Simulated assay, not measured.
Amino acid sequence: MIRIRALRLPTLWGAPAITYKPACSLAGQTSRGARIATGAVFFAVGTGLVLRVRRTLLRALRQARRVGGAAQSTLLWPLPPRIDELNVAAAQLSAGRASSAGGDLYEVIPTEHGVRVLMGDVRGHGPEAIGTVAAVLGSFREAVHDEPELGRVLRRLDRALARHLRGRPPVEQAEEFVTVLLLEIGRDGEVRALNCGHPWPYRLGESGVEPLDRAEPLPPLGPFPLPADLPAVRHGELRPGEVLFLYTDGAEDARDARGRFFPLPDVLTEAVRSGATSPQAVLGAVFTRLLRHAGGSPPDDVALLVLGNERHLRRPPQARQAAPHPTTHR
Score class of each variant (00 low, 15 high):
residue 91 A to W: 02
residue 322 A to E: 01
residue 156 R to C: 11
residue 313 L to P: 01
residue 284 G to F: 08
residue 157 L to W: 09
residue 164 H to I: 02
residue 60 A to G: 06
residue 121 D to C: 15
residue 150 L to F: 10
residue 30 T to R: 10
residue 216 E to L: 06
residue 172 E to C: 00
residue 231 P to M: 14
residue 200 W to T: 10
residue 149 E to F: 15
residue 105 L to S: 10
residue 67 V to G: 01
residue 140 F to G: 11
residue 6 A to H: 13
residue 215 A to M: 09
residue 139 S to W: 14
residue 163 R to I: 02
residue 203 R to D: 03
residue 281 A to V: 06
residue 261 F to C: 00
residue 169 P to E: 07
residue 37 A to K: 01
residue 7 L to Q: 01
residue 207 S to Y: 00
residue 225 P to H: 14
residue 304 L to W: 08
residue 172 E to I: 03
residue 50 V to P: 00
residue 184 E to T: 05
residue 241 G to W: 00
residue 124 G to N: 11
residue 100 S to E: 07
residue 267 V to W: 00
residue 246 L to T: 10
residue 21 K to P: 08
residue 329 H to T: 08
residue 79 L to H: 08
residue 299 P to A: 15
residue 298 P to F: 10
residue 302 V to L: 08
residue 194 L to A: 10
residue 80 P to C: 01
residue 10 P to C: 04
residue 12 L to F: 04
residue 180 V to N: 04
residue 263 P to H: 14
residue 19 T to W: 09
residue 281 A to R: 13
residue 57 L to N: 08
residue 89 A to T: 15
residue 249 D to H: 07
residue 71 A to S: 02
residue 67 V to Q: 01
residue 82 R to K: 01
residue 305 L to I: 13
residue 105 L to R: 05
residue 102 G to P: 09
residue 65 R to C: 02
residue 101 A to D: 03
residue 187 R to N: 07
residue 222 G to F: 05
residue 238 L to G: 14
residue 302 V to T: 08
residue 242 E to R: 10
residue 224 F to H: 14
residue 187 R to W: 10
residue 102 G to L: 08
residue 104 D to C: 05
residue 223 P to H: 14
residue 298 P to Q: 08
residue 86 L to P: 02
residue 126 G to V: 11
residue 120 G to K: 13
residue 108 V to P: 03
residue 295 G to R: 05
residue 126 G to D: 05
residue 296 G to S: 07
residue 310 E to I: 10
residue 132 T to V: 15
residue 277 T to Y: 10
residue 252 E to N: 04
residue 264 L to Y: 04
residue 264 L to E: 03
residue 112 E to L: 09
residue 248 T to G: 04
residue 57 L to E: 14
residue 11 T to Y: 00
residue 118 L to N: 08
residue 93 L to V: 12
residue 84 D to T: 08
residue 44 A to P: 00
residue 120 G to M: 13
residue 160 A to T: 02
residue 114 G to F: 12
residue 244 L to C: 14
residue 39 G to T: 09
residue 233 V to N: 09
residue 7 L to Y: 07
residue 89 A to Q: 12
residue 95 A to T: 04
residue 30 T to I: 04
residue 302 V to H: 08
residue 147 E to Q: 15
residue 172 E to R: 07
residue 274 S to C: 06
residue 129 A to V: 13
residue 69 G to R: 09
residue 15 A to T: 09
residue 42 F to C: 01
residue 154 L to H: 12
residue 234 R to G: 12
residue 31 S to W: 13
residue 330 R to V: 05
residue 199 P to H: 11
residue 118 L to T: 08
residue 145 H to Y: 12
residue 213 D to H: 14
residue 211 P to Q: 09
residue 262 F to R: 05
residue 135 A to S: 15
residue 105 L to H: 11
residue 127 P to F: 15
